[in-house]
Simulated scan of single mutants.
Amino acid sequence: MAKEYYELLGVSEDASQDEIKKAYRKKAKKYHPDSNSDTADEEKFKKINKAYDVLSDEEKRKKYDRFGKQGVEGNARAGQQRASQNFQDIFEHLFGGGGRGRSSGQNLRIQTSITLEEAYKGIEKSFQVKRRKECPECNGSGAENGNTSTCTECEGQGQVRQVQRTPFGRTQTVTECPQCNGTGNIPETKCSECNGEGLTEQKETITVDIPSGVKDGQRLKVAGKGNESNGRPGDLIIRVTVEPHDSLERRDNDLFTTAKIGVGDASLGTQITVPTPDSEIQVDIPSGTQPGQVLRVKDKGMPSRRGRRTGDLFIKVDVEIPEKLSEEQREVMEELRREKEESKTFFETVKDFID
Rank of each mutant, 00 (worst) to 15 (best):
A2H: 14
K3P: 07
E4C: 07
Y5M: 13
G10M: 00
G10N: 00
E13C: 01
E13D: 08
D14N: 04
E19Y: 05
I20L: 09
I20Y: 01
K22M: 06
A23I: 05
A23W: 04
R25V: 05
K26L: 12
K26T: 07
K26N: 06
K30R: 13
Y31A: 03
P33N: 04
N36F: 13
T39Q: 08
A40Q: 01
E42P: 08
K47M: 15
I48W: 02
S56F: 03
S56N: 15
E58H: 13
E59M: 13
K60V: 04
R61V: 01
R61T: 00
K62A: 14
K63D: 13
E73S: 15
G74Y: 11
N75P: 01
A76V: 02
Q80V: 15
Q85Y: 08
F87N: 03
F87E: 01
D89L: 13
D89Y: 14
F95T: 01
F95W: 08
G96Q: 10
G98D: 08
G99W: 02
G105Y: 02
Q106T: 10
Q106D: 14
L108A: 12
T112M: 10
I114Y: 09
E117K: 09
E117I: 03
A119N: 00
Y120A: 02
G122L: 02
I123M: 01
K125G: 04
K130W: 07
K133A: 07
E137V: 03
E137L: 00
E137H: 07
E144T: 06
N147T: 10
S149E: 11
E155S: 11
V160S: 04
V160P: 05
V163L: 15
R165E: 15
Q172S: 13
T173H: 07
T173G: 09
V174L: 07
E176F: 00
C180S: 09
N181G: 08
G182F: 06
T183H: 06
N185Q: 14
K190N: 14
E193G: 03
N195T: 05
N195E: 10
N195R: 09
G196W: 07
T200K: 09
K203H: 09
I206T: 08
D209F: 15
I210Q: 03
K215W: 04
L220C: 12
L220N: 00
K225H: 15
K225W: 07
N227G: 02
N230M: 12
G231M: 01
D246H: 06
L248V: 02
L248I: 05
E249V: 12
R250S: 03
R251P: 01
N253I: 02
D254H: 13
T258P: 04
V263I: 12
G264Q: 12
G264R: 12
D265N: 12
I272S: 09
T273Q: 08
T273A: 10
V274L: 07
T276E: 05
T276L: 03
P277L: 05
D284T: 14
I285R: 03
P286Y: 15
Q293F: 00
V294G: 01
L295H: 06
S304I: 06
G311E: 00
F314D: 02
V319Y: 02
K324Y: 10
K324G: 00
E328C: 00
E331T: 07
V332I: 06
L336Y: 06
L336I: 05
E339V: 00
E342T: 06
E348I: 04
T349W: 11
D352R: 11
D355G: 13
